[in-house]
Design a protein around this nucleic acid. Sequence first.
DNA 1: CTAGGTGCAAAGGCTTTGCTATGTG
DNA 2: CACATAGCAAAGCCTTTGCACCTAG
Lengths: 126, 126
Amino acid sequence: MRMTPQRKLIIDILKSTKSHPDALWIYQNAIKKMPRMGLGTVYRTLDQLERDGEIKRIDFKGIAHYDANVNVHPHLLCSKCGKIVDISDSYDLDIKNFDLKGFKVESINLDIIGICPECQSRKGES
Amino acid sequence: MRMTPQRKLIIDILKSTKSHPDALWIYQNAIKKMPRMGLGTVYRTLDQLERDGEIKRIDFKGIAHYDANVNVHPHLLCSKCGKIVDISDSYDLDIKNFDLKGFKVESINLDIIGICPECQSRKGES
DNA sequence: CTAGGTGCAAAGGCTTTGCTATGTG
DNA sequence: CACATAGCAAAGCCTTTGCACCTAG
């Protein structure tokens, strides 16, 4: 895979944030630097990066989010607003205790789903 | 929420399988018993059941899968074919060691993503 | 009667894909 | 010149939603 300016920009954007953005957010930030970039390019590039193991994909509420931190590390996910927050930068899960049933492991997601403080306090709003 | 025949059937179908099916699979099985049931009803019912904490939703590769086992238990997910397999029926993750940042926890997903034995052996196919 | 649930179909939203153009070696 | 990639827009696919009808209490 060739390292194009588009690809470099997308990686840079992803590494510069801890917000676990989706493709649209990445696209909107990318076009600030490269106004002609297409959304399809963003999707294609994110796919390739994920297949290469350079980034991690987090599926939540039907939307794909991406994370430049490929270490195993737990996330907090808000079931109301969809926000994703890191708990720590890494977590040592001892995978050797599991029966992996012949799977060749690529990555591990430890996701704690709940309601974030902000959504708890605006619970009663219409 | 009223316990309608549709709702009962969907719960029964989900409890009778370990395949972590998606809405379409549940629908296709449901219409064997109730041919006039609509796909919208399946989606609505699954949503309600999940909000009530009676079932668990697993987002993977852009598709929502459902699991009648609401215990914390790890899954193996195949990144090629999308298959979801249980590792065990329960797993005791000590959540107290985490900084939950004020989140009110609803559920926990421990997903190990990899390539299943079947997809490994058909690696080279076109 | 009246609230909530269902069936049906249309609409919605995220993602993928086909095609042409472009850039690099 | 060959080939991977980008830009653009259309298509695809899963999911949600509006509306009229129905059923239990």
